[in-house]
């Protein structure tokens, strides 16, 4: 078996989700070749060779690949595909755009966002928005796979010693053109799409004490939310409200501070991957859904948390 793994990057640095995809690839087994396609992306290739477990890095460096447009990127991958039994990558928006094209052009099915590797041709993947997990088996000679990065540990980014081969084929399909992009500022992401959310409730006591929350949020690159009680009490505006009648969020990490955990609040955040509750009332219902609970005075805990992050 031999695996072609597509690197995720910004032409400057390797994105850590790639390291999770390498783990998935290693579970499948066989030699792993990583493709770095981009523009002026030598530094990414230099990162890539150090990743544990790779035998080779292919560098396709051309202005055409700068923005990872699906038409050109998929043509490049298909051109290289003949040597591999598996083509795999972390399910980034670039890969989600390009990989199904690769599968179609190879006349094979695609396995979307796998969360587990059972064998070289059998995988687990979530369906129905994660409410069920399907075990799926591929009959195709080439397996085209995208990986849900959060389901796999990352391999070591240092210690590897792969060689770099330069790929000179360039596919410019000429039918789509990059116009512009507007990347969200990372310091305070939008509540609905943030990876981390820290919310305050009635226990915050005042509008001023939300500053404590914001300082922690800044450290984490988190969005700030609030319970309905905090909104009702006038501490913050209602566009920050998380809950059944506010925004529904499902971040990687949700930190509930001074929130008792009324059911309508839980409805807005219970799908979060990891939930932390900080509350002085150890009987607060929020602790029943929290993965990690910390009982104590938030006015002491928040500054300490900010200092230690």
């Amino acid at each position: 078996m031999s695996i072609l793994l597509i690197a995720e990057h910004d032409n400057n640095k390797l994105n850590p989700v790639t390291l999770s995809a390498v783990t998935a690839a290693r579970q499948i087994g066989g030699e792993i070749t990583m493709l770095v396609a981009g523009s002026s992306c030598q530094s990414v290739a230099n990162d890539a060779v150090k990743v544990m477990g790779l035998s080779k890095v292919l560098l396709a460096d051309s202005a055409v690949y700068e923005k990872g447009l699906a038409e050109s990127l998929s043509a490049l991958i298909v051109e290289l595909a003949a040597d591999y039994s598996h083509i795999i990558a972390a399910a980034s928006s670039t890969i989600k755009d390009a990989m199904p094209r690769v599968a179609a052009l190879l006349d094979v099915g695609q396995l979307t966002e796998i969360v587990g590797v059972e064998s070289e041709d059998t995988f687990k993947r979530p369906i129905y928005a994660g409410n069920a997990i399907a075990t799926v088996h591929s009959h195709d000679a080439v397996k085209v796979i995208t990986v849900r990065a959060s389901a796999f540990d990352k391999v070591e980014a240092e210690g590897g010693n792969a060689s770099i081969d330069v790929v000179n084929v360039v596919f410019d399909m000429g039918v789509s053109r990059f116009v512009s992009e507007a990347l969200l500022k990372s310091d305070r992401p939008e509540l609905a799409v943030a990876n981390t959310v820290i919310s305050g409730g009635r226990g915050m006591g005042s509008a001023e004490s939300f500053n404590l929350l914001e300082k922690v949020a800044d450290k984490l690159g988190a969005a700030v939310g609030a319970s309905r009680a905090a909104v009702d009490a006038g501490f913050v505006s209602n566009d920050l409200q998380v809950g059944q009648t506010g925004k529904i969020v499902a971040p990687e990490l949700y930190i509930a501070v001074g929130i008792s955990g009324a059911i309508q609040h839980l409805a807005g955040m219970k799908e979060s991957k990891v939930i932390v509750a900080i509350n002085k009332d150890e009987e607060a219902p929020i602790f029943q859904v929290a993965d990690y609970g910390l009982v104590g005075d938030l006015f002491e805990i928040l500054p300490e948390l900010e200092a230690k992050l």
């Binding site: 099915g109 979530p126 369906i127 409410n131 069920a132 997990i133 399907a134 075990t135 799926v136």
Partner: peptide, 10 residues
């Protein structure tokens, strides 16, 4: 191309 072998509750 792809068969579903089983479905489980997460």
């Amino acid at each position: 191309h792809i068969s579903q072998l089983k479905v489980e509750t997460p």
